[in-house]
């Protein structure tokens, strides 16, 4: 059921390609799904950062993976992938809208301060 609604929302977004609704769609499609039965979005964000060493590189790697999800291309451990499976592939246009929102949401730069 979750997969059907997820694909439905993304399909609508793809169909209309409306940036004004991108953030709302990200909240509904990505955040809702990842907060329930698949790995946490923040955990994935830090895992990418830890593996690739910069936001720019992480975003690039994530884009590559989501365009064509494979076990080798994933940064998640094989055990996790066994439990949750590979992420469904996403279109370049969708990724262009979603990934910046995703990295903006968990941006580590905004959360570190000096005293």
């Amino acid at each position: 059921m979750a997969k059907i609604s997820y694909r439905l929302v993304l399909g609508i977004l793809l169909l209309f390609n409306m940036p004004a609704f991108a953030k709302e769609s990200f909240e509904h499609a990505c955040v809702t799904c990842h907060s329930t039965n698949i790995p946490d979005l923040e955990m994935i964000y830090f895992r990418y950062l830890q593996t690739h060493g910069s936001t720019k590189r992480s975003q690039k790697a994530m884009r590559l993976y989501l365009l064509n999800p494979t076990i080798q291309g994933s940064t998640l451990p094989p055990q996790v992938l066994k439990s949750f499976g590979l992420h469904p592939p996403l279109s370049p246009a969708l990724l262009d809208q979603m990934l910046p929102l995703y990295f903006e949401r968990y941006d580590v730069k905004k959360r570190i301060q000096f005293k």
């Binding site: 720019k56 301060q113 000096f114 005293k115």
Partner: peptide, 16 residues
């Protein structure tokens, strides 16, 4: 995350 600099000047950098 609030980093106490303890009188040092600090810079945190990524891989690039």
């Amino acid at each position: 995350l609030v980093i106490n600099t303890k009188g040092y000047r600090i810079g945190l950098y990524d891989i690039d």
